[in-house]
């Protein structure tokens, strides 16, 4: 049925795959060879980093919840805030979007803890959720990249460019993608298919993993993506020569982070529009993918969400990538006015 509707989007590209290392040949066959290569490198590096910890030392984590306190003895450079949350209860592990260390540092939930510290967990309904919202928006952009990367047929060449610093007030999250389509205006049905792909990807409940890698490895990982390849040295220069990578499912991307814990934190998702941008980036036209999403824990009636979808169709005012710009934040050229 979908073949009639659109010639561009491949419906079955995003299927549920277990990790590359564990899955059978039959399942990997529909993954692109590039994704297999990247995940292989990622797995090797992850294993190497785990082995380099050496003798296991213990750290004391003081958890401060809204009503209760606890002290946990965890493993240095191995245990993550998510492990602490699992000790404290399923509910805390499920609802926490990001950890707060010593009341000042936002910490990705799957990033190992380096030292003894005070620990708090933040979710979407706390009284001051601005930071959590921003992290949620960044994760949405990241997942949108994963969907855009996988949703097209093999005949369309897709290269992810970057996403701007997350700004919830702009009404939509954004990913700028290079497609070798001359002038593509997505139909309603194509947008619907994209949205469904994103929902399906989120429902697969991929943990969003985190890893810091050297510039050389990052260059090797993204050697087939000209844009990321060019951005990496600049990003590393602002980040002590390290590149921060995130992985959800089989999708790997650069971002400063932090991200939310799991892709299943996204509830309502819509990819609202894809707009061709006016830029001088070499290699082909850049399209801006825009969407709007809400966390699973926040319910909104369909009329109100319809208003948000309507607004997300307008072009997002975030900075448009050009051939000359400075890459400071993550993977993203920093808009001069970050909200």
């Amino acid at each position: 049925m979908m073949n009639n509707i659109n010639v561009i989007l491949a419906r079955s590209m995003v299927a549920s795959f277990p990790r590359v290392a564990t899955c059978s040949k039959r399942l990997t066959s529909s993954l692109s060879s590039e994704a297999v290569r990247q995940n292989h490198l990622f797995d090797i590096e992850q294993k190497k980093q785990k082995e380099s910890v050496g003798r296991i030392e213990k750290i004391q984590i003081e958890y401060e919840g809204p009503t209760d306190k606890a002290t946990l003895t965890m493993n240095k450079h191995i245990s993550t805030p998510f492990d602490c949350a699992k000790h404290l209860g399923e509910r805390i592990a499920d609802q926490s979007a990001v950890a707060l260390l010593n009341n000042d540092t936002l910490w990705h939930m799957h990033k190992p803890l380096p030292d003894s510290c005070k620990l708090q967990f933040l979710h979407y309904k706390i009284p001051q959720p601005t930071a959590v919202n921003k992290i949620f928006w960044r994760s949405c952009s990241f997942i949108l990249g994963a969907v855009a990367n996988a949703a097209f047929k093999d005949t369309v060449k897709v290269q992810l460019h970057s996403f701007p610093s997350p700004n919830v007030r702009s009404g939509s999250f954004v990913y700028d993608v290079q497609l070798d389509l001359a002038d593509w205006k997505p139909t309603e049905k194509e947008l619907k298919v994209l949205s469904i792909e994103m929902i399906k990807f989120c429902q697969q409940s991929h943990a969003i993993e985190h890893m810091n890698v050297s510039t050389e490895l990052a260059l090797d990982l993204f050697r087939n993506n000209t844009h990321k390849y060019q951005q990496i040295p600049d990003i590393a220069a602002h980040n002590n020569g390290k590149i921060t990578l995130f992985r959800a499912g089989h999708h790997i991307d650069i971002s400063r982070g932090p991200m939310v814990t799991n892709t299943n934190h996204l509830g309502r998702v819509t990819i609202a529009n894809v707009i061709k941008l006016n830029t001088d980036v070499p290699g082909g036209p850049i399209y801006r993918f825009q969407g709007v999403a809400l966390p699973k824990s926040i319910m909104l009636n369909h009329f109100a969400f319809g208003l948000l979808e309507e607004r997300a169709r307008n072009l997002n005012p975030a900075r448009i990538p050009g051939s000359q710009e400075s890459f400071e934040e993550d993977n993203s050229f920093v808009a001069q006015v970050t909200a």
């Binding site: 979407y124 949620f136 009404g171 926040i298 109100a304 948000l308």
Partner: peptide, 20 residues
């Protein structure tokens, strides 16, 4: 969920209202 205007859906709705 209603009076806390910092929650993500309230931020989005307020901005949509302004834009309208």
């Amino acid at each position: 969920m209603h009076n806390n205007r910092n929650l993500i859906h309230n931020v989005l709705l307020d901005e949509a209202k302004k834009a309208y």
